[in-house]
Amino acid sequence: MAIHERSLVEPERILRKERLVIDGIDVSGDWNLIILPRVINDYDLDFAKEIVNSPDGKTINQCYQCSYCTASCPVHNYWDERYNPRHFIHLARLGLIDELQKRADVMWRCVSCHKCTHRCPKGVLVEEVLKVILRTMAKRGLIEEYPSKKFDKFFTEQVLEYGRIEDGELLFGWIEKQGYKVVKDPILRKPIPFIGETPEWLKQLTMKPIKSMNIGFLILNAKHMLFHPRTKNWNKFKHVLRKVMEEEGALAH
């Protein structure tokens, strides 16, 4: 017997027997499959309230669970069936924190392609809502640090510091955060691309403009790596920005 939306049921709750005899009656065949009931400990209704109260999460209650978002989602279709936006919204509205936590390893995988938001017939900003769910979970300490959040914070810190980002520093900084040993020059503390443990593909890609003698490109990017491009008149604005982000708890831990 097929199970509808099997990815929503944990494998250990599915019992399948080759031969099953109950009270002396052989019920093998169509009845050999049992889904064990799950235990729900608590509903946390404040969780949904917190989401509704944020400006980007207030559309969550318009959802009528049609699953158009899940049908559109490339992560669900091409990567992992357990990534199911409709189900996450359902769980968040009910306040089933335990169930959300069980899916913490896939919940961050949204690639922000906005197919869900675009196609939702009820006007739910699905992508935004999912990010608010994640943000709320992180704020309550319900989910561990996940890769995309690390990157988001790393990116945002650069924006906050300089007003602009720079590709080289972003790339090498991220490589370093992932545990590669990036060698830096002793004076300006900037990464040197060719020595150290940078991954092979990155080495080869940085070699390309050198091999093709693309001098202008090299000079521009070297200059940007050495002297990070900055927005002028940024300092006063930076303080306001930092204050706002601290209020939202964005800079914590």
């Binding site: 943000r135 959040k149 988001d152 914070k153 945002t156 924006v159 964005a250």
Partner: peptide, 25 residues
């Protein structure tokens, strides 16, 4: 002249009002 980063797809996951401010500037 003198623009700042829009926050791209990253900052919006960390802070809502922050990205509004970045773009409003």
């Amino acid at each position: 002249e003198d623009y700042n980063c829009c926050g791209a797809m990253e900052s919006k996951n960390v802070t809502f009002m922050g990205t509004m401010l970045l773009n409003a500037r």
